[in-house]
Design a protein around this nucleic acid. Sequence first.
DNA 1: CCATTAGTTAACGACTGTGTTAACTTTCTC
DNA 2: GAGAAAGTTAACACAGTCGTTAACTAATGG
Lengths: 118, 118
Amino acid sequence: MGFSEIELSAAFGALSDTSRRQMIRLLLQKPRRAGELAECLDMSPQALSRHLRVLRKAGLVFEQGIERDARVRIYSVHATAFQPVQDWMAQVENLWRRQLQAFKDFAENPRRTGRLKP
Amino acid sequence: MGFSEIELSAAFGALSDTSRRQMIRLLLQKPRRAGELAECLDMSPQALSRHLRVLRKAGLVFEQGIERDARVRIYSVHATAFQPVQDWMAQVENLWRRQLQAFKDFAENPRRTGRLKP
DNA sequence: CCATTAGTTAACGACTGTGTTAACTTTCTC
DNA sequence: GAGAAAGTTAACACAGTCGTTAACTAATGG
């Protein structure tokens, strides 16, 4: 519940790019090497590395421990990555339901409620 | 279910700004005038107008019909505004659950499942 | 009409994000 | 140890964003 605005902005911003969303989906299927992502997305390793940095800074993705070959870096989706975004969306949904109810009340008995939220 | 990547990018991008998220929340409480939003957020009318344009182009907000005073423009949150975002988040949640299940299966019976998603 | 009000748009400057090319680090392999 | 492989980082060019100031549109009120 306690999430900062900065955190939220970073998460939404990171998800505002199609390639990065695709990366998330690929990493949700299974953890993958950086190079593997670059191949899947047909993107240069440099470009992909920067996208990874964005996702890392947003806390959506993390680099897990070394494998046999210490050159390769394997990335995964962070467990609680989407909690801030989901919490915010849930709040929005609640507010929306409340406004809908206000309309409904007004429709059923206009003069009693007067206008919605004076 | 059928949402375009462009649409998604626009929505996430629009929500990646703290002021715009605040605007959404204010508009979810009740429809408001543009100037009212500017006052609430302590922002110049010009700056706010541009934020409104971003939200409009993302389909999150719309300008509803004229009131008594035709100079004022009243904005509301669009009903199906957050559907693409919520759908995408739901997909992510499903994929996450699936990966979690794969881990669980592997932990319970390592050699039968071999490795997750070869 | 003329001034005022509500709001948007245009133009400028500062800042940020993105892809490319090039250089660099670290690790493996022979 | 030399060279290749996997990634990251640096430097550049370019486009997009954001706020401010100024100009503009449209409607109201005397």
